[in-house]
């Protein structure tokens, strides 16, 4: 089975750089493996692998006060572990942040253990009024820059979710 598409990863990285992001803090999900490698190899970014997703929330929130654009990159399950950190840091102190996740559990996900994300990921984001947008086609990648800008406008995190079809280069 083919892995995540490197051309799509490069196209995403291009939009991220264009949005002024310099620091990328990541923890992997198989779907974003190529994207992580792209950030690691691209000299426009400082890529920092973190030990758990909450650490990315802490690091990126601090980077805001350092005047640096940052991105927390993780799987859907990782976001589910970050609810406390997001509400406590980013909501309490009104700190913007951009978070990329995988839209696990949607049609096309073949991992049975992500069924729970299919059931609860979006309801959880909605329950804490966490704005998110889902990109499932290559022609939707301009949403990335809009999401980064929107986070700054509302002084809160904004999530961008990518589908498997997009990340594997199987969408339009």
């Amino acid at each position: 089975m083919a892995g995540p598409d490197r051309e799509i990863a490069a196209a995403i990285a291009e939009r991220v750089a264009g949005a002024g992001i310099e620091l990328v803090a990541s923890l992997p999900d198989g779907w974003i493996a190529a994207l992580i490698e792209e950030f690691e190899a691209d000299a426009r970014f400082d890529h920092i692998p973190v030990n758990r997703e909450e650490s990315a929330v802490g690091l990126c929130s601090g980077a805001f006060f350092g005047g640096r654009g940052s991105l927390a990159l993780m799987g859907a399950s990782g976001l589910m572990t970050c609810i406390y950190a997001i509400t406590k840091i980013n909501y309490t102190y009104m700190v913007p942040m951009t978070i990329f996740i995988t839209m696990r559990g949607r049609l096309g996900d073949r991992a049975k253990f992500h069924v729970s994300n299919g059931l609860y990921l979006e309801p959880v984001m909605q329950s804490i009024d966490l704005p998110y947008t889902v990109i499932d086609r290559r022609d939707g990648l301009d949403e990335i820059g809009r999401a980064v800008a929107h986070s700054r406008t509302i002084s809160r995190p904004v999530v961008v979710g990518f589908t498997r079809d997009l990340l594997y280069g199987e969408s339009g």
């Binding site: 690091l59 929130s61 601090g62 980077a63 640096r68 840091i89």
Partner: peptide, 10 residues
């Protein structure tokens, strides 16, 4: 790590 983000940026 919040502090590290500041130290990284400045």
């Amino acid at each position: 790590l919040f502090a590290a983000g500041i130290a990284y940026g400045i």
